[in-house]
Structures are given as structure tokens and as C-alpha cells.
Nucleic acid binder design. Sequence first.
DNA 1: GTCTATATGGTGATAGAC
DNA 2: GTCTATCACCATATAGAC
Lengths: 217, 217
Amino acid sequence: MTPSKQEILEQAAACFMEQGFHATSIDDVARRLGATKGRIYHHYASKIDLFFDVHREGMRRLFEAVEPAREAGGDAMTVLAAMLRAHAMAVLTHHTFESVVAQGVQMHRFGATTPAQRQTLDELIASRDRFEQLFKDQAQAARDDGSLAPDLDVSVAVKTLLGGIQWSLIWYRPEADRDAASKDRLADAMVRTLVDGVRRRREAGQVKPGLPRRSGT
Amino acid sequence: MTPSKQEILEQAAACFMEQGFHATSIDDVARRLGATKGRIYHHYASKIDLFFDVHREGMRRLFEAVEPAREAGGDAMTVLAAMLRAHAMAVLTHHTFESVVAQGVQMHRFGATTPAQRQTLDELIASRDRFEQLFKDQAQAARDDGSLAPDLDVSVAVKTLLGGIQWSLIWYRPEADRDAASKDRLADAMVRTLVDGVRRRREAGQVKPGLPRRSGT
DNA sequence: GTCTATATGGTGATAGAC
DNA sequence: GTCTATCACCATATAGAC
């Protein structure tokens, strides 16, 4: 990927996050690049193609963040928690791209598209489904080994977990000059809420901490 | 409120949910009404005013749903769970209007508005903040009486709880002909996930965890 | 109160200079 | 590879008939 294309992706992601796909004009993106739209149309045939490429990059970053946690091993609930934590960090860190992923999901449900666009979007959504399936599989493994609350519907539970994290796209203010440690604390707080719930655990001998703590910094 | 205005609100909410504010044209809403845009402009001065009125109605329905649960009494965690459940039911039932509320929050962060629009939107967002504060106050009460996990940040926890519910705006398919009982089960599943967490609660003496198993199914 | 017709402005996309 | 200039289209909003 050329540096120019990468820069277009970054600025487009910022515009799409702030204003949404339809309210963002190609001129908006170009202005943010300090350029004119000729530059963008040289690399992308249409606004929707640019949007799809941002979406694709957003998905790539999600997989990149979560896969190491998934493959690290350990007992099933610990791995699930680590995956959620990695996902939370990815959403907080790449929030412009992940906002576009969320918009793409909405567009898939209702957006009017040409057949060619439809196919591209179908592929992106299939990728999103595979991502969610990683969490469902891990939750099922935790259910099988008895570390997940046995009365929960795995599909609804996973959607609720991911939703709790992803809603930070709505309320998180990255412009409030956050450092990495601040994001770490926030991701921790979200995942602990989701994994252990808000209701106090009263059972005797709560020997296992909620999550593996990240040492340092 | 005249029946005509109510009908405009309903169809506008549906359009705004499906396509978003910017992608929805006044003609789209009119077409859904089986009318032309003259009808809409007779009642609303502009598209943004119509949007704001949908947003306002969405907030009204949220308060209407949650306040009875809040005032029902009981111990603090029980009331918090009942509020979350009422909220989940409201989001599932009025998902078109609540989608608009979520869009309004986004618009408040980034949307370009005239000063008059800005003031209206500020008021709507203040209302949304008061709504969230109901949950924060209740969570704090639960913390005070020891029924909430004491190490949680109340603000982040509440945002995560509400987010887990509100993300159903993205994935829930109301068109799949759901009855009220189905919504009840879904709301229950979400709230249980959030209040008690996905990690199994072990009774005392049952603390021995097995090795992680990868059994099939 | 709702319709038709239209003025006005903005946006996606293209053509061609450099 | 990027720019300027331009076209064709669509959407908001208004005016005025009925």
C-alpha cells in the first residue's frame, strides 16, 4: 500500500466517523488531506469504494488485535477475557476505523447498493461474522469446561459483551488527550464489568482475580 | 399532538433508523406516508426539526419505561436490574426512535449546526445525560449498600451496561416477527449477562477448576 | 392541509491540463 | 499523480394552486 493511499484511508476514516458516510463529501476528505478530490479519485473509483477500503482495514485491525489473545492458550474463560480486552483496546485505539465498521453493518441491512457493491459489502460482513464467531466459539469452550455461567445463551451473551465494548465508539472521547495507560484502565474496567458482572460476588475464597493484570506502566 | 403529526414521526423514525439522517430525504419520508413533502413541511420547518422531534419522543419513551422500575422500590441491585430490563424492553420495542436518539448523540459531537439547532440539540443531550444519571445514581446506591462489585468505576460500568443493551439497535432484527415474549426473553438474557457477568459463579467448595477442555459441540 | 412546480445549492464523478 | 473546471443529478425548501 502506497503511503498516499494509507493517508487517504486515515483521513477518510476520520471524516466518516465524525459525519457518517452520507454527510461526508469527497471534498471534505480532500480538504483534510490538504489536497483536492483529484487525488482521491486517482486511487478510488468512488466514495463507496473508499468507504469499503476503510471498513476492510478496520476489520483487519480487529483480527490482528484479537488473534494473539486467542492463540495464547490458557483456560477458556481467561482466553475469552483476554480476547475481549484486546478487542476493547483495538476499538479505543482505532476508533475511527471501527466506527466505519459499525456503519458498514448498518449499511448492509438497509443501504441501497448496486450488485457489485453488494458483493463487496457481503464479503466484509462475512468477515465481521467470522470475527464474532471467534468469541462465540471461545464462549462455547468456556461453557463446556464449566467456567461460563451455564444458563446463558452463548449467542446473545457474546453480542451483549461485544456491544458493551463497542458502544464506547459512541461515548469515548479520544480527543481528550488519553495516553496508552488511560486506555488500558478503561479497557480493563469495561471487560471486568462484562466478565464478572456488576453484582458483587460473595462466594467464599475469591482466589482468582477477575482478569490477568497487565504489569508495568 | 395531531394524529397526522404522530404518523409523520413514526415514518420518519423508520427512515432515519434505516438510512440515517443524511441519507434520508424528505421525499423518502413522504413516500412512506403515501403523501408528498408538502404534508411534512406543513408540520415541520425543516428536516432537522423533524429529526429533533423524533429524538425528543425517543427520550420521552425511555424515561416512561424506566421510571416505574426506579420507583418500585426494593434493594438497590434489584432496582438497578429492573431498570436495565425496562430499558432493554424499551430499546427493543421502540428501536426506530431509539436509533434516532443514538444518532442525535453522534450529531451532538460532530454535527455542524446553526446556533438555534445547537440549543435544541443541547437540551436533548442534557435529557440523555439525566437518563444516564438515573442509572449512575442507582449503581452508586448499590455500591453503598454493598451489592455492587466494589472495585468497579460506577461511570464506566454504567456506560458499559447501557452499551451492551443499546448495541442491540445494531443487531436486533425486529422484522423477524417477534412477539412480546420473545423480546422478554432477549431482554432477560442481556440483563443477566450484564448484571451477573458471563463468568460462572461458583458456590463455596466448588472452586476446583478443571483443565481447559476443547470438547466438541 | 396537502398538492404541484420550481428556485437554489451542493455533491459525485469525469475530462483534460500540467 | 495531482490539479482545475465542469457537468449532471439530487435534495432542501419555498410559492402558490386547490
